[in-house]
Nucleic acid binder design. Sequence first.
DNA 1: GAAAGCAACTGACAAAAGTCATCTTTTTCG
DNA 2: CGAAAAAGATGACTTTTGTCAGTTGCTTTC
Lengths: 243, 243
Amino acid sequence: MAVLFANFEPMNPHEESRCENCIIRELNALRSLKKEELKAISDAKVTRTVKKGESIFKEGEKLNGVFCVRDGVSKLSKLSENGKDQIVKIASKGEVMGQRSLIAEEAANLSAIALNDMQLCFIPKENFTESISKNPEFIQALLKNMAHELKLADDVIVNMAQKTVNQRVAGILLYLDTHFGTDADGYLSLVLSRNDIADVVGTATELCIRTLTKFKKEGLIETEGKRIKISDHDALDQLWDGV
Amino acid sequence: MAVLFANFEPMNPHEESRCENCIIRELNALRSLKKEELKAISDAKVTRTVKKGESIFKEGEKLNGVFCVRDGVSKLSKLSENGKDQIVKIASKGEVMGQRSLIAEEAANLSAIALNDMQLCFIPKENFTESISKNPEFIQALLKNMAHELKLADDVIVNMAQKTVNQRVAGILLYLDTHFGTDADGYLSLVLSRNDIADVVGTATELCIRTLTKFKKEGLIETEGKRIKISDHDALDQLWDGV
DNA sequence: GAAAGCAACTGACAAAAGTCATCTTTTTCG
DNA sequence: CGAAAAAGATGACTTTTGTCAGTTGCTTTC
């Protein structure tokens, strides 16, 4: 399985996207939040609309709550010292952004930017931390979750350090396929700019484009504008695995 | 500050290294473990000696406890699919290994190998998980800790993806300096093989050696056998920062 | 203390990745 | 709509990184 992000499993598309559902899904696999807590959180939340390209929060900012993605997709990136952005995570429906910062009581380490029009729920810090301090099951679920994310992060470190750009580009394509699926024509549903793909892979945009062009010539993918269709999934898998 | 590992702050060298201290230090900045719990853990622990080069645990293994480092240094690495080892962390006195796996209830993601002769305390799973389930302050300290490690891991991802081998070699030298200090002659106290340095940096041993040779010619470092002395700390800093 | 084995090192070359300039296509917006 | 801006694409070139083959030198061990 192509691990380029410390992400959660793909969401069941039939799942509802109400806020109650979203916080349960991300933070609370064990359904450990009590009814009253959900109600309290639900009442406190503020819904916000963010347009494509707009910033949700920036690295270094102090967050006073967490954002739950109701709809749309956001990239979480960090500016490296050489001036290039590195995309560390892609958050979509049902995922929560900012909880790491709240828990660690640190400023945000990443910037969040909307990749398309989004609907967000904002849950104030107080509601979030209250659940942490008062509900042991909730903390345990959170802890387990973080421990799992930490493993995935280690995997990403290994992949970034050891895989070639070729392999990592194959990886992001497979990732987009398993996590966001394809449209009616077989094209990857989540359309990223070449520049964003390069920022995920950690390479220059030109090399990213060249790599995609090469994949196209080799019959691994087809493209139409910025849209990409995977035509030889197995070959991409093998490329990723280094066969 | 050079972040090549998701590690903790350097340990105060005057701190005692009894087990009570070690688990407090790593997992329990808030001194949240109660006296009786410490006693119970202390009684249950098993001390073990591991010689240089020996394995402590291997990735894929199921751990039935955590290891606390009493003395010596261990590398935590993962074999990438292309057959190369990537060192993800260096654990030294006072640090705990294996807790991530226990918390996530997953097999070990990393292998631990002693870099020199070591003294370890083994704390059985039951003692560890009991503290987790019964002591809310303990979990909170752990959670906060994990959240912080996650931030560091993200930083490492960015560094591996965006920095050159040159910069990353400078980074590990600075890291070794701040975390393990120097001996009487000014040489870095923790002596790694060129191969291990390469495995931290994520490059080939030959390139790692060449880079060190270049640093030597440029007057950034001096070497004597495998020992390394930093002669121009500022220049290494600037290199790391990409100035 | 000699042989074996390993780690450090070097040269020569190949492959991968980055950069700069330029051109084309698509998208955005007044 | 049409101009301007942004994104995509490609060529030519440089730099970085990887690989293979081999030498040197240290250290371990019988």
